[in-house]
Nucleic acid binder design. Structure first.
Lengths: 134, 134
DNA sequence: CTTGCACTTGTAGTAACTACAGGGCTCAGA
DNA sequence: TCTGAGCCCTGTAGTTACTACAAGTGCAAG
């Protein structure tokens, strides 16, 4: 039976130790048991829970979405369908974000290519950005 | 000679009117001249400046990067080279972000495809995310 | 004239952390 | 056994880039 301190948990899961405290404050992680001296003590279940949270966050789920996923899993009768729905909605948002960034990429590429990059105080990039509003 | 109120400026440039005030507070926009009653009054130069800022922000430049671009343009002797450098560095960051999001997209696609989406309390997505840390 | 909207200020809230300050505990080494 | 480094504890403030409110003033149309 493993028992980790907050710092060890942080190392093990790859989550910043202050962030652990933050997750407890906002209720993503439960208040953990304490040692006699008042130090937090985490078992395997809590380690796995924090890892789940870290993975959700790395996949771009917001804290609130992560909370909902956790509530589903915590609940007695969660269903695969609900999890899939949330995941697909999130996937759609990620795809939209990629689309937006590609538009930005194209614009930046275009205006960069118009710019000589010479050491002169005349810049097509600035010219483009500095036009009056359409 | 145009003179716009804050609200009209907001409409004209597509920037929220509270945001205008915020940009003045952080020094991106100068304190504008006032009418006798103390109302802000914006001329064409300020309209163009705010539009420049909006475009930078839409292209994903941070406030600080936008400020640097403005300082270059405001300065007597800015050079095209400096602008291009900043733009290219930013383009690189955008490309990295796209790469990261594509990785996320792939992962989400993969785990979604493993999930039946049926109304059962067994979910491959959850199984994957709920594994102990590696 | 009045009513409703725009304007003024300062302040507080948002997301998701991150970084202190000021104090207590613990454990390895001398 | 002592001591000092490095954990841990709490609460609070800072970050980015806004956005929203509250309480009060001014202006313009009907």
């Amino acid at each position: 039976m493993i028992q980790l301190s907050r710092g060890s948990l942080a190392k093990k899961t790859g989550v910043n130790s202050e962030t652990v405290r933050y997750y407890e404050k906002i209720g993503l992680m439960p208040d953990p048991p304490r040692t006699l001296a008042g130090h937090r003590s985490y078992d395997q279940l809590l380690i796995n829970r924090l890892t789940f949270i870290r993975r959700c966050r790395e996949l771009g789920f917001s804290i609130d979405e992560t909370r909902e996923l956790l509530e589903l899993v915590d609940g007695e009768d969660y269903s695969c369908a609900e999890v899939l729905e949330s995941t697909k909605a999130h996937l759609e948002r990620i795809r939209n974000k990629i689309k937006d960034l590609k538009k930005i990429e194209n614009t930046l590429k275009t205006i960069s290519s118009r710019c000589s990059g010479e050491d002169v105080p005349v810049c097509p990039i600035v010219d483009i950005l500095w036009q009056p509003p359409s």
